[in-house]
Amino acid sequence: MAARNRQLADGLFDEAKAAYAAAAEAGSSPADCTNCGQCAAACPQLLPVNQLLAECREALA
């Protein structure tokens, strides 16, 4: 999400892609999401986390 916000909030696409790549390398890749939805159920910000992860992967992978 932090990587995606570098793009959406700050307009820094290259930095966003680099942050996404670093997170993926560290083992936090949205590509691993199975779309089970448990993350969204736990989110106190009521975010559709699985949907946002898919958009993040689409935009930055």
């Binding site: 999400m1 916000n5 959406l8 736990a42 989110c43 975010l47």
Partner: peptide, 18 residues
Amino acid sequence: QSKAIGCTGCRYCVDGWH
């Protein structure tokens, strides 16, 4: 007018919360 995702980084979605 912001398009930012409102994630606070609390990590409730990971770290064994489910």
